[in-house]
Design a protein around this nucleic acid. Sequence first.
DNA 1: AAGTGGTCTAGACCACCGA
DNA 2: CGGTGGTCTAGACCACTTG
Lengths: 252, 252
Amino acid sequence: MPAHAISKSVPRYITVAQTLMQEIEQGKFPVGGMLPTEIEICERFAISRYTAREAVRQLTDLGLVTRRAGVGTTIQAKSVNARYTASISDPSDLFAFTKQTRVQLLGEDQVEIKGEWLKVLPDAAGQSWPRFTSLRYPAGPGGKEPIAYTETLVQPSYAAIRDRIHRPGQTVYQLIEELRGEKVHALQQEITCVSLPKKIAELLHAKPGAPALRVLRYYLGADESLLSVAINTHPQDRFKLTTRWQLNWNAE
Amino acid sequence: MPAHAISKSVPRYITVAQTLMQEIEQGKFPVGGMLPTEIEICERFAISRYTAREAVRQLTDLGLVTRRAGVGTTIQAKSVNARYTASISDPSDLFAFTKQTRVQLLGEDQVEIKGEWLKVLPDAAGQSWPRFTSLRYPAGPGGKEPIAYTETLVQPSYAAIRDRIHRPGQTVYQLIEELRGEKVHALQQEITCVSLPKKIAELLHAKPGAPALRVLRYYLGADESLLSVAINTHPQDRFKLTTRWQLNWNAE
DNA sequence: AAGTGGTCTAGACCACCGA
DNA sequence: CGGTGGTCTAGACCACTTG
């Protein structure tokens, strides 16, 4: 017997899965109830058990049903709620294709949180945070132009980072994790656009007033406490932030 | 022959998958290289093809490998390391806190893909794509200034969108999904910074030459085909793109 | 043409569960 | 105990990619 009689190149288990999904959607198999057993599906569609299982696997992957040996298949939801997700293995992945970069430390000092800084760190008013400034170059040698000017502020209690920050290839968030022995729990990224201030423009060998991407990155600890904030300024045409969002079916 | 000789109740395909994962981790199968074929795995572990496939399925589910009929199984990563993920329920969520926006359609025409457009749509050279231009305002009434100027190009075969695009509250990607009866599979977002061109500046009531965020959004179909591309231009200070990345605990 | 992964069949034994 | 899903075998044909 041929694998599929009618619609060529559409797998049998796909059409079976779609049929079952429609019937769930229509309430023929209500949420909380049971899907027919594998054997019943085999008989109904005249398919082997492998094909029936593959069809039901589609539903489980979509989170529509759950299965338990000895019990059966329980309907969990009428329809899938699709979500798009993006993932990175490392905060430095946010630099996308420019992951390979070289960092040159410019200096360090202390910043009093007042004035303009209150917009960045409203909860740290009156405090004094250590600041590190640096330039980021494309990987490899050569006198290429920098792609970013970075200011990194770290929470006062992490000032010990100062002793380690000179090590090349280390990012601040890695140092924080090292110091704390804990992972950065989340990071929040805010992207805006600015005119290049004169001082930064000089460092970047760019024209003052030219447009630039400004990327603020807040590093948060397990209790949502602010560990560090990095301010990256990228001159026009030297940087492009790329994110890929993928449709995710196995939503809850 | 018994299904599994040694470790009872641990499926054979699980142990095979773990063995393969270890060997990938150790570099025995380097990233970018090929995993042994199914038949080779069958012979090596003395298992049937079903079991071998089930083992490799574990790896594909984890994103460690991808498979292509006629080619083989390609190693994608040494280990599961998607530590941080960001998720949105809907592409319009990328507008973050400005999700509530009002759209004013300005006009529609056809664009020949040549010159500057080749940078945006290099694979569509010589084609003619329908274009819709619009302004996006903050929600609610009042004569507020627009937060974005948007050009949307759709694949020529989706020109029928023209008939529906006048409906308010509908986004282009929703119309595409409606037309195609399929979800947008992925979207790729590219963020750069530009100087406001004079014509756009006038529409946005902004100063020509002022910095602006440019967000390109490519909408991709199931086979990675380009369905549509939207070009959003946001004047300085009127828009901020916020993304929150959350540490993923269930990653290995 | 040869080899890959994708689909499918018809069997089988098992661990688990509820009556 | 009988029925469920979970695992597994040994075949088979197919669509696809590459030489």
